[in-house]
Design a protein around this nucleic acid. Sequence first.
DNA 1: ACTTATTTGTAGCGAACGCTACAGAAATCT
DNA 2: AGATTTCTGTAGCGTTCGCTACAAATAAGT
Lengths: 187, 187
Amino acid sequence: MSRKSDQRAQATKALASHILENGLAQTSLRQLAAAAGVSDRMLLYYFEDKTEALTAALGAIAAEMTAALATVIPEGEKLSAGELFEKLSALTMSAKFKPYMRISMEMIAASNDESAPYGAISNSIATGFLHWIAGNLVSDAGSDTNGDAAAILALLDGLIVLSICAGDDTALLARNRLVETAFRAKN
Amino acid sequence: MSRKSDQRAQATKALASHILENGLAQTSLRQLAAAAGVSDRMLLYYFEDKTEALTAALGAIAAEMTAALATVIPEGEKLSAGELFEKLSALTMSAKFKPYMRISMEMIAASNDESAPYGAISNSIATGFLHWIAGNLVSDAGSDTNGDAAAILALLDGLIVLSICAGDDTALLARNRLVETAFRAKN
DNA sequence: ACTTATTTGTAGCGAACGCTACAGAAATCT
DNA sequence: AGATTTCTGTAGCGTTCGCTACAAATAAGT
């Protein structure tokens, strides 16, 4: 029982990085197995089936994403909505983070058809993200923490979509515009 | 030469509505043909290949989308960024328009892998959308029309993504929050 | 050492995929 | 009416897909 779980863990890592590089679209068992350096037969020995393999890999990717989030704000320090949006958008639009957002988009787009676990995974990532954002917002009297968190996540997602389908320059234009006014005090 | 183009046009409509209902994921030739009420053999008679059939159907869908846009604002009347965002988000988040946004998301997500024409199509839709938005914005002195348009599109996309992966209620929360402040005057 | 359980390779199944060859039916032209 | 082009059904090719049956190799337990 030792060998299998070890190699399974190692394969999970390899699958995660392969998916990050190549997306979710072309992920046949044989491709995934080659990327992990094993035979397809072995991949189905480590994992119950393809869905379980993908779920494990996507789980690892999600973990990396949430770990990256922690780096954008000082330990346990709460920020205003405007500051948090500025810092988070800088992260999510960075070249290093783009692959993660790309995969997220693929999962979200694929979550409509009920095959594959994409819907459940993207949903749990989104709600986790929302809670994390809400938990790092200062809660002024009269402020709507949940509304702010939802708005921030919408903006982050929107900027990523825009960068994909209209280019990075347009996305930066939108970000600059939104940083200015989107979360200013309600006066 | 008459029969073929007629049936091709009719098939295009059927394909478009089928894709709107079922998404881009499961669109095999045989499925598409069944949806259009013809044999797969005939579909490949009307269209050169699968890519051409999908391109035609997506083109029809894009045309319907841009037609729907014109209905949200009075004839040739220009609006402020805040007003336009409010009206457009009401449209894009409506139940009737959701399928169109879903397809757009699928195309955007699929535009990374170079197969299929999705990348080019989603790009042209996005830039067309941007120009349309910019063209319907009042241009105050000192205002950044392009920045406003990009910001509006980012918000619209973000709200759709949020509604998919976090639910309609969360998306509405974000919208209400953003309508309040996102495009208020800069001072 | 011998039994048992875990780990791997080979080979291939049945299904679906995009697409095509071929021939017959139907329309069109002269 | 005969010739020619346009249309459509049948059948299937070659490939890839997810997955499995089978058996040999390897390790582990007693």
